[in-house]
Amino acid sequence: MGLFYKNNKSEKLKVFYIYIICNSTLLGGELLLKYIFPLRELYLLNVRVQLLVELSFLLFYFIANFQTPSAKKFFKIILPLFIVITTYDYIVTSKTKFGADQAIAESFFMLLLLFYFFFEKIKYDVQAPLYESKIFWIAGAFFIFFAGNFFLLIYSKSMSNNPVFKQQYLTIYNSFNIIKNLILCIALYFKETNKPISTNYGGIDTSIEDTFFFNNPNS
């Protein structure tokens, strides 16, 4: 990550670096609470916090790259909504069981966000090839990761007691995690560029009425 930061110091990417640091710290906490000091309740709480942190940072990172102000406003609503879902899920779910609803909600929101991100890229970013930008690879990595795991998370709610499922869950989840990390590594090779926003090629304001030319309060 040091090498990554050395080559890329854009303001927007700083959000992503902070996300990586926070996520790594929380992952360390998860390992500690899972294997060294096995405290299941705290471990699950840590997972919930990790999901919340992950969504918050990714949300702000992608929102910062949006070009439509209304979309920025709209997607900002996701965070309070997600906090409500997390809190509700934490209250209603047993403290010793993982709340899959929160993870499903996170995946859903992220897919929605990334889908819009790609839509905006198609609409506005037409100056240089998209695959030459860092954000495209980051978005692609998370899009594949969340899309791949979406059904898995839905099923994990009802089949968490099945050991075969547990094994397959780990295989699928880890595969997508590796793919995501590999794609994120590809992002390292691209330099962040500030491309101009699309130009309006609209014609002359033809809405000007003829009366504008005939009636003038100044004349």
Partner: peptide, 20 residues
Amino acid sequence: MFFLQATDTTPSTGISPLMF
């Protein structure tokens, strides 16, 4: 989320092909 696997290991039905 890497460590989300449940601790309860009661065997049940096989994996749904729908999920795959």
